[in-house]
Design a protein around this nucleic acid. Structure first.
Lengths: 214, 214, 214, 214
DNA sequence: ACCTAAGCGAGACGGTACGTCCGGTCTTCGA
DNA sequence: TCGAAGACCGGACGTACCGTCTCGCTTAGGT
């Protein structure tokens, strides 16, 4: 008779925040501040306090929704990627399938080169990768949310080529794609060498036709 | 034979400490403490204060000789590698040249797999790589001191194979080696896939003979 | 007789809440929670959030009706005192007037001693006194609502004694009462000494007959 | 043989700071800042961060040496009192003994009135008293270090008067002094009435000769 | 008997201060 | 004169509350 709570479906482990009441305004401001700071002062000198101050937000608002600086940046970056995709209108991030595997791979890798050189993406992406090396949990998230979806596109394209008889029938596409993707990734991440269209073209050439003489 | 620092006549800039009076005891203790801590609690939670305390050393003794946590770990790791090499006696970590390029590459990559799985090396090495992504200066040092020497061995072996007509005459060895080295590196660093002898064997196979059908 | 607020025609400043629709239930719960918390964890660790949570009440419900933690406690305490008075039925807390001033004062001070030792009253009362020292506005309210009414009773009794020729004709009763009331108050508030019937009896003795030999 | 710590005389519960290496400079700056802030913004709005900032000191330097804000202020105030005593050259804080008890008490109480009205002393002293009401441990310290020494002077003076036959032979001086000291204290602390020479003179008069007619 | 406007529980929000940890510098003392 | 010890200033950490602000949801009165 008195106020009776029908707590039926309310497991609510421990004061989980109510995401329906979350401030969209604050979230956007935090994303923007996080990305801006990482770009300006680098990841290690980006602090939660700094993000909060720049976003005009209380620190608790960050701690309420994210467990760590790395997770903030991860979501911010995912959001950025999503936005960029939407801005680009149609979906540009698919590997073309003109029937000519070599040309298609070279084309998409040239696009990737452009993207890796875009400073908007470079700083946060490298920061996340770095943190992911050392923070296993974040690393797996990075791989699952950012890396694997892209790699899957290569798998698909290679399978299509396989059906068309353009690559070995026994090929493992998940390994095969690493022959041209991993070198580019390593050069970019570890500064082990310059990145250019010529370089990626060469990678595709070597990978498809092999290092041995024909 | 190895880089030998003639520290005698290197006063360096500003109030250089007199390295002739440096305590060998302290240096060893600091190396050991740094490696142990990185292995135990991970790189981010390894602190200079912690290293100093564990090594039974004043903080200043660390700051006097190294500019940063990363540099301590870098030297500690280089020292570890050197020690390991000496312990192993000969086996000077070169790539065998039996005349069969494919067999030689598979063999050396299998050794690399073993090394990457050695927990003594894994933690500090990954930590240094991570820090190197974000700290450009350290990154270059990491590449120059740890990565490039190894890669150069592949360059040499590939050139030898080139002279023997086992690889394309126009091949750029510095790029070619990345086809099998970078995939392994990426899987290890970013946990993007499992590492095994079978995997590296496959990499060498694909790289040498190409993805396209013969 | 007591201060009766004719709240009807008092729109007061800025968005005054409509006190006719106030929840009696919440008020009681807040009083209880406030007194309980002060008794359990002490005044400084009693928080508005804590009171609200314990009372099962929104924070805003507290802020709507009280300007500060101290005011909540003040009202809660006044309510407690009022309730206690009503429970006690009559015994309207006046000083007896048997004609024997010394006996009457000793009797009423013994009652006061009992009251000061009642733990229900001690914690909140001391807390309010403390806050009053530092918060001038609250201090005046504390004095006006809690202290002065009691002191006035002594003034009245002393005047009656004056008319009966039992105290000096030129006596200022407002000062005179302090000779036995203030020492007791100070011992209680500042723990400067033990409190007992013997002590208050002595105070009355000294105050009435003086320290000097007769 | 190896580094063997002769921990003989090193009980050292838990990383107790080494007070011989304490910075006198910092201590002074902290005292000054604490007193200034209490005077300017009041005790509740005086924060440890504020003190540290104003003193140009790291927060840790405060936490290293004092357990709480109240303790900082306590020491600062004791230091101030000590300094004031030294500045005054000879020791002024003794109750004169001219043989005329009444005159001596009136004189020293007038001095006390002056002191209570000195704003340098008033703010911190009242703040400490308030905190002491609620924080039992601090309260005892306040009483022991600030109050009791002064009260002891009255005890001594009263005993001297007792030997001279100017007060009752059976008098308990510790209680007797409260007849004129406590009223003054209460008026000052709780704003229960004005403070003046006339008032303290009256108190002494009443206390010595009693409220009853002679 | 409905309608509407308030009080209500809840709790997210921008803030401030907390007390702790560590970075990098500086000072003291013993070997 | 180096090294251990550790105090120092500074600044970020993650937490606790402040007082304000929205959200539905009761819950009166007024019509």
């Amino acid at each position: 008779m008195a106020a009776q709570k029908s707590a039926q479906s309310a497991p609510s482990v421990q004061s989980a925040p109510d995401s329906t009441r979350r401030s969209e305004r604050s979230r956007r401001a935090i994303y923007d501040a996080a990305l801006a700071l990482v770009a300006e002062v680098g990841y290690p000198r980006t602090t939660i306090e700094g993000i909060a101050a720049r976003a005009g937000v209380g620190k608790q608002t960050i701690y309420r929704w994210w467990p760590s600086k790395a997770d903030v940046l991860m979501e911010a970056f995912l959001d950025l990627a999503e936005q960029a995709a939407q801005e680009a209108g149609q979906e540009p991030y698919v590997i073309p399938d003109t029937g000519d595997l070599e040309a298609d791979l070279k084309a998409v890798l040239r696009l990737t080169v452009d993207q890796l050189k875009d400073p908007r993406f470079a700083a946060p992406s490298r920061a996340l990768a770095a943190e992911g090396l050392v923070n296993e949990q974040l690393g797996r998230e990075y791989v699952a949310k950012l890396l694997e979806p892209s790699l899957q596109l290569y798998v698909d394209r290679l399978r299509s080529a396989q059906e068309a008889g353009q690559v070995r029938p026994d090929l493992d596409p998940r390994i095969a794609l690493e022959l041209f993707v991993s070198p580019l990734a390593q050069r970019w991440l570890q500064h082990t060498g310059p990145i250019s269209y010529e370089y990626t073209d060469t990678l595709v050439d070597y990978a498809l036709h092999g290092l041995a003489p024909r």
